[in-house]
């Protein structure tokens, strides 16, 4: 029982792969599926660079075994944009200089993609607390918070626009 076949969905695509049971989900996504946007910054669950969304919840993919994702639906940074159209978070990070080296960025984007679904109108304090779960060594976080607030506004506008009365 040191290898298994697993089936899972990543960014809407189904995969079936044979995998060593000790492989982490992060290594599986990166090496086996070639989805290298998920980064490894510490491999002990602190930095958050490897954060992906599994079955709707943000999780550290370095602290999960690939076999634990059997049957799961995973979203990674590669699945965030809609084709060539960036997700509002991606747009806002670009607009507000919410990234520098970009290494922590995929984890932060996925954390907030999940967070904003649960908190469509977060307070500044809630944004800060959510961001505290990811380490960034370049930006000093201030522009990330700005970007998230901008994305919130944009997403709210989008929702209002889609409503029956329009914007």
């Amino acid at each position: 029982m040191t290898e298994r076949t697993i089936r899972l969905s990543v960014n809407g695509r189904e995969y079936e792969r044979r995998v060593a049971v000790r492989w982490t989900l992060a290594d599986f996504l990166r090496d086996e599926l070639g989805l290298t946007g998920t980064h490894l910054g510490c491999e002990h669950g602190v930095c958050g660079a490897c954060t992906v969304v599994m079955n709707g919840a943000a999780v550290r993919s370095c602290l999960l075994l690939a076999v634990q994702a059997q049957g799961a639906e995973i979203r990674t940074v590669e699945g965030l944009a809609d084709g060539d159209t960036l997700h509002p978070l991606q747009e806002a990070f670009w607009e507000h200089h919410g990234l520098q080296c970009g290494f922590c960025t995929p984890g932060i984007l996925m954390s907030f993609a999940c967070f904003l679904e649960e908190h469509p109108a977060p307070s500044d304090a809630e944004i800060r607390e959510a961001l505290a779960g990811n380490l960034c060594r370049c930006t000093g976080y201030v522009n990330i918070e700005r970007a998230v607030r901008a994305a919130v506004t944009k997403l709210a506008g989008g929702r209002a626009g889609a409503g029956p009365t329009g914007a």
């Binding site: 669950g45 958050g48 943000a58 779960g133």
Partner: peptide
């Protein structure tokens, strides 16, 4: 306890 992603698991 930790952060949201930690508490999710």
């Amino acid at each position: 306890i930790g952060h949201a992603a930690i508490r999710n698991r």
